[in-house]
Design a protein around this nucleic acid. Structure first.
Length: 425
DNA sequence: CACCGTCAAGTCGCA
DNA sequence: TGCGACTTGACGGTG
């Protein structure tokens, strides 16, 4: 039973994936970005290991233009050493990694060239997971695709092209219900027909339910049976609706209460849960800690507190104090209370006073080591923010640059610096 | 340095 | 018939 997150690790230094635009592509730049992105991936894997996250979706963007004619490099050979090192870390920690080709990867398009590009993309993803020396429980998740005016023909085309795929690809492919075209019943039947396991996506199912009267738990149970022994623990996707967002938009964070209701309703069906949520690793750690609260060491929650504290302080000094006291007393239900307080802080509106206060606290790291002009610059920026003349981002950006310059590792891994305009308005 | 338009790909739905 | 949404934040050009 593992809980994981997808593609991006927030608030962890140098885990950004880099890109290049088609018009700027050169051999050297592709090579450089590939190397850099593999280094970033390694740092994400390190973070997951250090925080006991054993389920992770690797971004398709690690290799730029991976399945595009612009990139003819044999990256899996050129960067073999990096792949092996990352793969060893994954294996050593018992982490399960997956990949999820995007919305442009289609097996059932009526346009042959679209299908061929789709197959190329699957070859890329399979090659990536194999370069990491993962076994076939490392999955490639795929949607069925479009309807093109005639669903049954579209499904036939899917089956036809699925059967053209190589065995290594087929042994990794898993099908997922989507929010528009193919509901779980159709995907389940299709999975049965081609012999592919099925991932049940809770939010997609909610938006695009199948006709047949079955409960979520029954569907999850049925889908579990499509997973063979070598496919690993059956997996589902879980996300929550962003309030006020487009239907199907993923929420900023996973609300613990709602998650626990869902989790309890499963009554211990053995599954892995991939969270699809904007705050990524933050929710993955939160959810996995909350469902096994009694097993969580104080040390682990202290690590979380270290990452959250300035973010909380910038939202509310009161909640910050409550959490400080909580960590001091550390009562029986500390884990759940901790995240409940974090959630309370997250929904508060922007409070310039609290932001200013947090800025000053962080400035404490620099006030005795900085130059006069840095000191002056900071106070000007903070002042301008307090007067409502600039965004908090400009203060944060400045503090970030200072943290980098003076190598304040503690700050470089603080959630305070996560760029997210929606989080603090 | 701050700001903002653009981005490799396919399909669907709407004007 | 053509364009925006989907999703997303980094890139990269401009002032």
């Amino acid at each position: 039973m593992a809980i994981g997150y997808a593609c991006i690790t927030l608030g962890v230094y140098q885990t950004t994936l880099h890109r290049i635009m088609a018009k700027n592509v050169t051999e050297d730049k592709l090579r450089e970005i590939t190397k850099q992105n593999l280094e970033a991936l390694e740092k994400m894997i390190d973070f997951n290991r250090e925080n006991e996250i054993s389920l992770f979706r690797i971004s398709s963007d690690v290799i730029p233009f991976a399945s595009h004619p612009l990139n003819a490099q044999r990256w899996w050979e050129e960067h073999q050493e990096q792949f092996h090192r990352i793969g060893d870390k994954i294996a050593a920690s018992g982490m399960r990694v997956s990949m999820h080709p995007g919305q442009y990867t289609l097996l059932n398009s009526p346009h042959p060239e679209v299908v061929e590009r789709g197959i190329e993309d699957l070859i890329y993803h399979e090659r990536f997971l194999t370069a990491l020396k993962t076994n076939r429980s490392s999955k490639l998740i795929l949607h069925v695709g479009g309807i093109y005016g005639d669903k049954s023909t579209a499904i036939e085309r899917f089956i036809y092209n699925y059967n053209r795929l190589s065995d290594p690809i087929k042994s990794r492919l898993v099908l997922e219900n989507d929010e528009r075209c193919y509901g779980i019943e159709e995907v389940y039947n299709l999975g049965k027909a081609v012999g592919a396991p099925v991932v049940f996506d809770v939010l997609h199912h909610h938006i695009n339910p199948s006709q047949k009267e079955r409960t979520v738990k029954e569907w999850i149970h049925l889908c579990s049976q499509t997973w063979g022994e070598k496919d690993g623990v059956p997996k589902i996707h879980y996300s929550q609706q962003q309030l006020g967002g487009r239907i199907g938009a993923h929420s900023q964070t996973i609300a613990i209460k709602e998650f626990l209701n869902f989790y309890t309703s499963l009554e211990g069906i053995p599954i892995d849960i991939m969270l699809e949520v904007k705050d990524k690793n933050l929710s993955a750690i939160k959810c996995s800690y909350v469902i096994q609260a009694h097993k969580i060491l104080k040390k682990s929650l202290e690590k979380e507190w270290a990452r959250y504290k300035y973010l909380v302080l910038s939202q509310s000094a009161t909640i910050y104090q409550q959490m400080r006291q909580l960590m001091k007393r550390y009562p029986e239900d500390a884990v759940k209370t901790f995240y409940t307080l974090v959630e309370q802080a997250q929904v508060l509106p922007l409070d310039r006073g609290a932001c200013q206060n947090a800025g000053l606290h962080i400035w404490g790291y620099f006030k005795n080591i900085c130059t006069e002009s840095e000191k002056k610059n900071f106070h000007i920026k903070l002042e301008r923010f307090a007067e409502g003349k600039t965004k908090y981002e400009s203060v944060k950006n400045y503090l970030w640059k200072m943290a980098e310059k003076y190598e304040q590792t503690y700050l470089l891994n603080a959630y305070y610096f996560i760029n997210d305009k929606t989080q603090s308005q």
